[in-house]
Design a protein around this nucleic acid. Structure first.
Length: 379
DNA sequence: TAGGCCATCTGGTCCT
DNA sequence: AGGACCAGATGGCCTA
C-alpha cells in the first residue's frame, strides 16, 4: 500500500520541520518515554529543544555498514604524518567537473578526493590541501587508505609546520576523548583568536584547524541528528531488532508522521466516544471532565490510554520483517491512495474491534485498532 | 551494475 | 564573531 496522495517531494521538503516538531514537542503521556522530549534543555535559536545530554553523549550509532566498529573509524596521527607521495594527479583518476552550488558558487570538490567515510568521528583523518584561489581553502580529507596526495599539486608538499599541526590535531581528536577534542577545539579557537588579535590573516595551519573544527562541529550535529532519528525509530510501531534492517531516515519520518496523524485521529475518535457515553446526546459539557476548557486534559487522559507501539493490532500481522512504510515500498509498486494509508489519516479502522468499542474497552484500549498498519501489503 | 542510502566536507546564510 | 543550520557535492557500501 502506498501513502495515498502523499508526495515524496513534499515530504522531503518537510522532513526538517517534522524533525523539529518531534524533537521539540512535549510528549503525550503515552509517549512520555520519548527520549528526545524529555528534559527541556537550553534551546538553540529555533526554539527547539536541545538534545538531552544522554543522547548526545551516546556512542556513535553502529550501522549496518560497520556493525563492528561503528561508522567512524579513527585515523591515527600516523596517517597524517606519514609521508605522502609526491604531488601527483588524483590517483583515483576521477575527473570532477566544475561544480556549482545552489548559490551559483563554483565548488571545486577535487579537493575532497578520497573517502570522506574514512574520517574519524571527531577529528578528520586530516590531510588538507593547501589553500586554493580566493584565499579560501578546500579541505581535502583523506583516509589512511588514500594514496593520493591532495590535488592542487603545488600545495601537496605540506610544510613541516603544517604537518605538525595536522599531527597535533589528529592526535587530539583521534582518541575521540572529550578532553582531547576539547583541547583541539581550544587550540583552534586560540589560534583564531590570536590571529584576530594580531590583525593578520590566518595562517594555513590555523585555517586548517578552523576548518577541522567546523567539520567536527558539523559531524557532531549530524550525529546528534542521527541519534534523534534513532530515538524516533525506537518509538515507531515497527519491528526492532538486530536482525532487522532499520528504517531509512525518510521512511522513519514518513512513518512518524503517519503515526502522529493516526494518534490524532484516534484521540478525536475517543473524544467523540466519551462524549457519546457521558454527554447524553452530545452535550459533553455536562461531564465535568469534558468541559471545553478542560478538553485537553481529557484528551491527554485518553492519549495515555492509547496503545503504544508494542500493542498488537488485531488485523495487523505480528511484528515481522521490517518493511518500509507504504510510500517507500519499492516492490511491488502499488497505486497511490491505497487503503492502508487511509487507515491512518483520520479514518476509523474498518475492523470490528475498531468500530465503536464498547465502553468496557475504554479502560483497556490496547486493542482499539489505533496501531497503524505496519506493512505495505496488508489488506 | 544501477540505484538507494548514508556520512562527510564545504561554503553560504542567519541568528545570538 | 561564533555557531547552527542548510544544501550541494562526493564517494563508499549495500542490494536488487
Amino acid at each position: 500500500m502506498m501513502f495515498g496522495s502523499w508526495h515524496l517531494g513534499k515530504w522531503i521538503s518537510k522532513c526538517g520541520m517534522i524533525v523539529r516538531i518531534v524533537t521539540a514537542c512535549s510528549p503525550p503521556p503515552a509517549l512520555a518515554h520519548w527520549p528526545v522530549c524529555s528534559p527541556p534543555t537550553p534551546r538553540s535559536r529555533d526554539n527547539s529543544t536541545v538534545l538531552p545530554r544522554e543522547l548526545v553523549s551516546d556512542p556513535p550509532i553502529k550501522t549496518r555498514r560497520d556493525p563492528g566498529g561503528g561508522d567512524y573509524p579513527v585515523t591515527t596521527a600516523t596517517d597524517l604524518t606519514e609521508d605522502r607521495p609526491t604531488p601527483a594527479p588524483p590517483v583515483t583518476g576521477r575527473q570532477h567537473s566544475p561544480l556549482v552550488t545552489r548559490t551559483g558558487r563554483r565548488m571545486d570538490s577535487d579537493a575532497s578526493l578520497g573517502s570522506s567515510r574514512a574520517s574519524s568521528p571527531e577529528g578528520d583523518s586530516i590531510f588538507m590541501s593547501h589553500a586554493r584561489g580566493r584565499g579560501g581553502f578546500a579541505g581535502a580529507v583523506s583516509s589512511s587508505t588514500q594514496s593520493d596526495s591532495p590535488p592542487g599539486a603545488a600545495g601537496s608538499d605540506l610544510s613541516a609546520e603544517l604537518r605538525s599541526a595536522m599531527a597535533m590535531a589528529a592526535a587530539a581528536v583521534s582518541g575521540a576523548g572529550g578532553d582531547q577534542l576539547a583541547a583541539f577545539k581550544a587550540a583552534a579557537a586560540a589560534a583564531h583568536a590570536q590571529a584576530k588579535k594580531d590583525r593578520r590573516p590566518l595562517s594555513e595551519p590555523e585555517l586548517q584547524q578552523l576548518r577541522l573544527k567546523i567539520n567536527s562541529r558539523e559531524r557532531k550535529r549530524m550525529h546528534d541528528l542521527n541519534i534523534a532519528m534513532d530515538g524516533l525509530r525506537e518509538v515507531m510501531p515497527y519491528a526492532h531488532g538486530p536482525s532487522v534492517r532499520k528504517l531509512s531516515k525518510i521512511a522513519t519520518l514518513l512513518l512518524a508522521r503517519n503515526y502522529i496523524l493516526m494518534l490524532s485521529s484516534s484521540l478525536e475518535e475517543m473524544k467523540r466516544l466519551v462524549s457519546e457515553i457521558y454527554g447524553g446526546g452530545g452535550s459533553q459539557h455536562h461531564h465535568p471532565g469534558f468541559h471545553p476548557a478542560c478538553g485537553s486534559a481529557l484528551a491527554h487522559s485518553a492519549a495515555a490510554a492509547l496503545p503504544t507501539s508494542a500493542t498488537h493490532h488485531p488485523i495487523l500481522p505480528p511484528p515481522g520483517p521490517l518493511r518500509p512504510p507504504h510510500g517507500l515500498l519499492k516492490s511491488p509498486p502499488t497505486p497511490l491512495g491505497g487503503g492502508a494509508f487511509q487507515h491512518w489519516t483520520g479514518m476509523p479502522c474498518p475492523c470490528s474491534m475498531c468500530q465503536g468499542p464498547p465502553p468496557s474497552h475504554l479502560s483497556g484500549m490496547g486493542n482499539t485498532g489505533l496501531v497503524p498498519r505496519l506493512t505495505g501489503d496488508s489488506k
